[in-house]
């Protein structure tokens, strides 16, 4: 399962780098410079990626050629959009460490932190393990 993920990533990175339609054969040949891999395996991987909506495919002659649906940057942006949306409506799909602070809030937290460091330098928490 994990290996499958690595393969999917390797295939996607090639499609992103080439930025043009590529056949299974081309992907296999490029991958084989690094590792031994069967044609059918790569075909399955591309099929999976197509099913997941990450690549387009087009019939060219008797075989398909594949292109990435979006650039790597756009994919990342769309993935992180869910996280960046300031939101109560995100629900419980994911938990964000901290959301954006307004300039006023930045002043507030910096002040609190400054007060803390002054005190912290005088007496460090004895129960604290460093």
């Amino acid at each position: 399962m994990k290996q499958m993920g690595q393969l999917e990533a390797a295939v996607m990175h090639r499609l992103w780098d080439w930025d043009r339609p590529a056949s299974v054969r081309e992907v296999v040949d490029d991958l084989q410079r690094e590792r031994k891999i069967a044609y059918t395996t790569v075909m399955t991987v591309l099929d999976n990626l197509h099913r997941k909506g990450l690549v387009h495919r087009q019939k060219q002659g008797r075989a398909y050629v594949y292109t990435a649906v979006m650039s790597q940057e756009d994919h990342t942006a769309s993935m992180l959009e869910d996280v960046l949306a300031q939101t109560a409506d995100r629900g419980a799909a994911l938990l964000n460490f901290v959301e954006q602070l307004s300039s006023e809030e930045q002043v507030q937290v910096r002040t609190a932190l400054a007060k803390f460091s002054k005190r912290g330098n005088q007496s460090r928490d004895p129960g604290e393990k460093e």
Binding site: K52, S78, D82, L94
Partner: peptide, 8 residues
């Protein structure tokens, strides 16, 4: 998220 994370 997980699908995209696998490739990104």
């Amino acid at each position: 998220q997980l699908t995209l994370l696998r490739v990104l």
